[in-house]
Amino acid sequence: MTKTNDPTPGDRRTEVRPANQRGAARLAAVQALYQLELGGGDIVSVVSEFEAFRLGKELDGVEYRQADAAWFRDIVAGVVGEQRTIDPLVHTALVEDWPLKRVDATLRAILRCGTYELLRRPDVPGKVIITEYIDVARAFFTDDEPKLVNGVLDRLAHEIRPDEFPAEAAR
């Protein structure tokens, strides 16, 4: 697995589809959840820091895209608030010998965000959610991680949204 040393997308950004404001919010939510998990701190401080210094701003030479702040807050708060529901779902969608706790922290944040949206954002088509988080994974990883995100979120989408993902379409 090849990943940048921090949860800031690297030079590969030019290969990734340009993010809209919700896409930028998703990317920032993954970064904020990574920061919460590894750096500690509380959700209010981390969200406030992102809104004040990152969303649509430049920080340490990195220019962050303008993001839908409400969408960002919803994802971060939703993942933190529903992690006890989200983590078992993600864990069961992973390969049997690869528990969630062994997954890279950035990848874990991506899977948690995608699962949250599949669960709580019925206003967004599941295929859109999956595609957006594959793009987020491509911003951070150069190997097979985007395929893993696709596989895990697709399995969960079939389970969580059976009307959108009929059983006969399941792999």
Rank of each mutant, 00 (worst) to 15 (best):
Y34Q: 11
G41A: 01
P9A: 06
G23P: 02
N20S: 13
N20Y: 15
A24Q: 00
R26W: 15
L27C: 14
N20D: 15
I43G: 06
G23L: 09
I43R: 10
Q21V: 15
L27E: 13
G40Y: 04
D42Y: 01
A19L: 15
L33G: 02
G10K: 11
G41R: 01
L33K: 00
E37A: 13
Q35H: 03
V30N: 08
A32Y: 04
L36S: 09
A19S: 03
A25I: 06
D42N: 09
D11A: 08
A25H: 06
D42T: 09
R26M: 09
A19G: 03
E15N: 10
A24M: 11
V30F: 01
R12I: 03
G39M: 09
T14G: 10
A19H: 12
N20P: 07
A25T: 05
V44F: 01
Q35W: 10
Q31I: 07
A29W: 12
A19Y: 12
A24P: 10
L36D: 11
Q21S: 15
R26E: 09
P9R: 03
A29F: 12
P18M: 08
P18A: 02
A24V: 06
A28H: 12
D11L: 14
L36K: 04
Q21L: 12
D11E: 13
A25N: 08
L33W: 05
L38P: 00
D11S: 13
A19Q: 15
A25V: 08
Q21N: 14
V30C: 08
G40C: 03
D42S: 03
I43A: 08
G23F: 12
R22Q: 15
D11W: 05
G23W: 11
Q21A: 08
R17Q: 14
T14S: 15
A24H: 03
E15P: 07
I43P: 01
N20L: 14
A29D: 05
I43K: 06
E37R: 07
E15M: 09
G23R: 01
A19K: 06
V16Y: 10
R13M: 05
G40V: 11
R12K: 14
N20F: 11
A28T: 07
I43S: 02
N20K: 15
Q31A: 12
I43H: 07
I43L: 02
P9W: 11
R13A: 00
E37W: 07
R26N: 12
A25M: 09
Q21H: 15
A28R: 04
V16I: 11
A29N: 07
V46M: 06
L38C: 12
R12T: 07
G10Y: 00
Y34G: 00
G40E: 06
Y34I: 03
G10V: 08
V46E: 05
S45Q: 13
E15S: 05
Q35P: 07
N20T: 09
D11T: 14
L27I: 10
T14V: 11
I43C: 04
E15V: 03
V44L: 06
G40N: 05
R12G: 08
A28D: 12
A32D: 14
A25Y: 03
R17I: 04
V16Q: 15
S45G: 14
I43F: 03
D11K: 10
D11P: 04
L33F: 12
R12A: 11
G23E: 05
A25Q: 11
P18F: 03
L33C: 01
S45F: 09
R26S: 13
V44D: 14
A24W: 02
V46N: 02
G40W: 05
A29T: 03
T14E: 15
G10F: 04
G40D: 07
D11N: 13
G23T: 02
I43M: 05
